[in-house]
Design a protein around this nucleic acid. Structure first.
Lengths: 143, 143
DNA sequence: ATTTGTGCAAATCGTTTGCATCTGA
DNA sequence: TCAGATGCAAACGATTTGCACAAAT
């Protein structure tokens, strides 16, 4: 009973705290716990509600508002990437490298596709010399 | 003051009615008027609220619920394609051919990219032999 | 001490639903 | 006639917001 919840953090607390500080965020208890759930268990594609459930399930005490707060703050600081695929909810992806997704329509699950497996050619220029901020490829499969 | 609104329908009424009947839909006044707004002015990427405004502005008498109804029914019948890009609203695309999109982040506007201008290679197999229902490519630009 | 973050509950907003009434074939 | 459509208003669900309180520097 030394850390912030029932489950031991997967990441070293000091390292997590440094990561948060390095992007200008205070390593509060809630953010530490959420960051641990997000980044301490491999790549995840998670919704706010799901992360909230995860937190409750592991004994972490946070409010839903704080979960939304943390997800948006992390996204703004580049620690997460927001994926919009289903208009009823937002997914947050812990993989911030350039990559793409399979979307399983029935289950609502997302799966990463490495950038090396999708090659885009003949891409048109962005109109008016605007710069491209991101290219998303989503392969929808009926599972 | 002979047709269903202030603005003359761009499409021939009989042709529109046939198009609706051909997919098993009754050509009601509301559906005819909405179909005309949707298909009678070139390709459009429109939200439910925007179509509703359009309808009101052209003197067409429909409820918002009917607009949603029509958009979903048309989509189910293959006359429209629903595009999810922004989690706060759904877009409906009158272009049902395979193609992709530019998304202008500031204005929220969408623009078609012909399929010929995006070539995907090295596509991974869909897992578990599931079939691919659709591939969406969205190029986000900061305009 | 000051700034930043958190939690609660209420508010928002796009969308959906229930149900009574109308309409097209 | 009568299945299918429409309209209204209430319900919904994810997300956001206002504001008082707590925690971090």
């Amino acid at each position: 009973m030394s850390s912030s919840g029932n489950k031991k953090p997967v990441f070293n607390e000091a390292a997590l705290a440094d990561q948060l500080r390095s992007v200008g965020l205070r390593p509060t208890q809630q953010r530490m716990a959420l960051a641990d759930l997000l980044f301490g268990r491999g790549n995840r594609h998670i919704t706010a509600e799901a992360l909230y459930s995860d937190a409750l399930a592991t004994g972490v005490n946070v409010s839903l508002a704080t979960v939304y707060n943390a997800l948006h703050t992390f996204t703004a600081k580049g620690l997460l990437r927001e994926i919009t695929i289903d208009s009823t909810r937002s997914y947050f992806d812990t993989n911030i490298d350039e990559h793409h997704h399979f979307y399983f329509e029935k289950s609502g699950r997302l799966e990463d596709i490495d950038r090396a497996h999708v090659k885009l050619t003949r891409l048109p220029e962005a109109p008016d010399g605007l710069s491209v901020s991101r290219i998303d490829v989503v392969i929808r499969v009926d599972g």
